[in-house]
Design a binder for these strands. Structure first.
Lengths: 262, 262
DNA sequence: CGCAAATTTGAACCAGCTCAACCGTAGTGG
DNA sequence: CCACTACGGTTGAGCTGGTTCAAATTTGCG
């Protein structure tokens, strides 16, 4: 299916999706060429714009190149729960391939640049490039893992451990897409948003962040996260990075066989 | 890709997976034939047996025909969180297609009969039958929706509403795979398990169930769920069945195009 | 029948909630 | 340039949904 492409290092990869995939697959020049071909229609979205309305119809599928997007449920009570956060390299609204209506709102936390695909167009592309379906299949599994881990957090971790855990997750996910300066990380998420990710009140969110700061674990002010003690942060979170599946297990042979599969 | 098969009604479908798929896709005799061909290796698993150990290696992929399987995380503290519950018609350990190690334990709540696939074998089958990958793709999306909804529950619903919500979910999911007598439903899940699904203590689980009984909403004793007032149950849960995606939107044409896709 | 597991109930406690007030910073319009 | 507003963050005080502990009861099962 694939001819042998030249292997490349993370540093030379341009697109976020390729950096992310390279955490698991062996990304070579062939794969790069596929995404070059496919990612043609790029869009810019303004901060606070809504990609998909809750109870609205799905439109296109997006692949984020830069910026943060959240998927959330607004409840009748006025409460809100953020279900997941999409970072560069993540697909968004993949459900549009199958479903017509969304149960969640998709909105931009920052200015966002993304590649856009009409869902039938994405279908065609997968037909042309079977390796794409491997990428999609993995992206699905990756997202599923994160949801499962969030369920564990919400069900059985304290507010403080949840906070530590989600920070660990963001750090690891940003690392993989090549954000440098991990010690001073921009997290464009308000305390309000954090509370709605973690299922706690905004007041308690604030107190938890202040406590973590007081204890010398992290500092988070004005969207700037500084990690003072990463070991301690991970220990308090009970963080095991394995669920992010950024340990490369797929060589080109397996990639090819998965491509044939999915 | 597919020749025109004869359409069939839910009642005549034998396999749980076909009943489940028929909730969304237009299942015809061709699709039936595919599963007849693929589901050859069937296994029986005893109640309480462990399919996959937490931190253990994945083995085969399973498709449940009868019985209940849960996926759970056992934490260092001794706490446990059940992430999802697999019912007849659900795939289990699909991650084995990509990942070698599991972050969760998979265990049988009842005696289980399931079809077993070596992961490479499943790959071959998908190569032969593109419609299979549509089924897998949808199964993934379906599971993802349930996880997202559980996150909403754990994050923003009270213990009582969570309880009502999972019960609504179980009822709907069992309905679709053809369980009759919805008023007197066997739910082979202990209060202990329920507590670990909902992220609450076993004591509070018990009190919540007793309160729902006292209020004439449901009765749940000895694994027998009786719904006294389904409207009220759904209202208290804030249950919107849409996320289960059991509203058929796929005719054979779309099925075929998705098959080409995924 | 007898053991082990699951359920039930009460009582005391606490993590996280709500309410309420206040602060800081960034517009924005006069 | 200042007054005004809006929005996010901060902090204290009191409250409550759900926890933990402990003990009794029921049920499943060999």
């Amino acid at each position: 299916m694939l001819t042998e492409g030249e292997h490349v290092g993370l540093a030379t990869l341009t697109r976020a999706i390729l950096k992310k995939l390279s955490g698991f697959f062996d990304v070579d020049t062939n794969i790069q060429a596929i995404f070059d071909d496919v990612c043609k229609s790029s869009v810019d979205l303004a901060a606070n714009s809504v990609l998909v309305e809750q109870s609205g119809d799905y439109g296109d599928v997006f692949l984020i190149e830069s910026g943060w997007v959240v998927r959330s449920r607004n409840m009748a009570s006025g409460a809100r729960q953020i279900v997941n956060v999409a970072l560069p390299g993540d697909f968004v609204a993949l459900n549009a391939l199958l479903f017509s209506q969304s149960d969640f709102e998709l909105s931009c936390k920052t200015d966002v640049t993304a590649y856009r695909f009409a869902s039938n167009e994405l279908g065609d592309a997968i037909g042309r490039y079977p390796a794409l379906s491997a990428a999609l299949f993995w992206a699905n599994a990756h997202e599923e893992s994160m949801l499962a881990e969030r369920i564990v957090s919400l069900g059985r971790r304290s507010a403080r451990a949840r906070t530590a855990h989600v920070l660990c997750e963001f750090i690891s996910r940003l690392e993989i897409v090549g954000v440098e300066d991990i010690e001073r990380l921009i997290i464009p998420i308000s305390q309000d948003d954090f509370a709605d990710i973690l299922g706690i009140s905004i007041v308690h969110m604030n107190k938890t962040l202040r406590a973590l700061e007081r204890d010398g674990v992290i500092s988070f002010r004005n969207a700037l996260l500084m990690v003072m003690n990463r070991d301690r942060l991970e220990a308090e979170a009970g963080f095991e990075a394995g669920y992010l599946h950024f340990t490369r297990r797929m060589d080109s042979r397996s990639w090819r066989s998965i491509s044939a599969v999915a």
